[in-house]
Write a protein that binds this DNA or RNA. Structure first.
Lengths: 176, 176
DNA sequence: CACTCCTTATTTATCGATAAATAAATTTAT
DNA sequence: ATAAATTTATTTATCGATAAATAAGGAGTG
């Protein structure tokens, strides 16, 4: 069986990335074993190491895909200046629906104490902040950088409320 | 002041809690071994289990202390209504100085996928949100519950910026 | 006072489980 | 047949947890 004549047309490497994304998001970096990832794809555990030298490398690959999707979604938002912040929020929530696990993973990866992971997370959050801030600035929003920070803070709150299953933490989910 | 909260007269159990708080905050739940905690106190690893039945129980004890300190600090804030939000923020930042590790631990514990831990984190964040929200309401702040949510979101952002060493994420830390 | 009893604090030794990673063998497709 | 895809077998390491032993210090009693 050659790669890609599988029903899903996904490469083994892609399947592994997909399975890893779900497991890492649901169970975290440490509780997700390479054996679990392998089993979820339907291959043996050592075979995972054929595509990724270490478990950390696999995690970083998953993470990178997630951050790239976020950055791309934010940069693709087209909007009149007065609606930009709201539409950016909409883009985030849309991704949260279509790629829930990946986004939740990305939003909580800063809590993983592996130096290499933390470095990547730091670089990516910095990139997102600068990108969002410059779009806000371009739209004439005052204190654009500060607003970009609060935008990220809101994203963190959304992720927290999803992970803990506490929707009432969200400001716009008011109880009657 | 309870009996023996002086560093030199601290009980072994308290010493272990202190060391665990620092290590858990710095290295996370999984990378912090009971052997490390023991070594940092100067006792042997199995002795930790004399005070805490499991590593998770030790972690929960540390966490509980942290959340209680937060809740107490917020409830102790006295302020005229128009300054309440600002003063509450000040109380959070004060704790971040005096008990940095504990607070950072508390703010990122939601990312730990152990069911028992997640339950405690959920209950505590709910409690904080309700408490802050009702104080905001008492001060006549409109949409108090929503403001309490944003208050927590800001706390998450502060923790993120500290953990990643990215101070420019904070809205009030404007670059020149 | 001295002798035994019991408690408190702590260590030594070790088990059982799990997980990442490596190397070598084997199957499958072309 | 040969090269890629994948497995089997195994290693190495670590960690949480248990059990049993040791040492020191009162406290009560004759």
């Amino acid at each position: 069986m050659t790669p890609r004549d599988d029903a899903s047309t996904a490469t083994r490497k892609e399947q592994i990335l997909d399975a890893a994304a779900e497991l890492f998001a649901l169970q975290g970096f440490y509780k997700t074993t390479t054996a679990l990832v392998a089993k979820s794809v339907g291959v043996t555990q050592p075979y995972v190491f054929h595509f990724f030298r270490t478990k950390e490398e696999l995690f970083l690959a998953v993470l990178d895909r997630g951050y790239r999707r976020l950055v791309h979604a934010f940069s693709a938002v087209e909007s009149p200046p007065e609606e930009l912040v709201h539409r950016m929020g909409g883009a985030f929530e849309a991704l949260l629906v279509t790629h829930r696990n990946e986004i939740l993973l990305v939003m909580q990866a800063y809590a993983i104490p592996e130096p290499a992971i933390r470095e990547e997370v730091k670089a990516k959050f910095d990139e997102i902040h600068r990108m969002v801030g410059s779009r806000f600035a371009q739209a004439g929003i005052p204190n654009a950088s500060g607003e970009a920070g609060m935008f990220i803070g809101t994203g963190l709150l959304i992720a927290l409320s999803q992970i803990l299953e506490l929707p009432r933490l969200l400001p716009w989910c008011d109880p009657e």
